[in-house]
């Protein structure tokens, strides 16, 4: 048996696996919201540190504005 039968079967099988995974993820609702995850990924986890730092920065900003 020639190798080409094997290769084509493998390639079709791999493609079919991807099709299956695609359909499964669509079914699970992964593609329903395509916006929020892109924003969520940019949020930092360290709330407290983040909060204090940023807070003081924005305070500074505000002070400057007040001076003007």
């Amino acid at each position: 048996m020639s190798i080409i039968y094997l290769l084509i079967s493998i390639s079709v099988f791999v493609a079919a696996v991807f099709l299956f995974l695609f359909i499964r993820s669509v079914k699970a609702g992964q593609f329903d919201d395509d916006y929020t995850p892109s924003v969520r990924i940019l949020f930092d986890d360290e709330l407290k540190v983040n909060g204090e730092e940023k807070g003081s920065v924005s305070e500074k900003k505000n002070k400057k504005e007040n001076q003007i």
Partner: peptide, 11 residues
């Protein structure tokens, strides 16, 4: 928000 360290809301 400021009491709960959630001030980065405004950032």
């Amino acid at each position: 928000f400021s009491e709960n360290d959630l001030i980065s809301y405004y950032d």
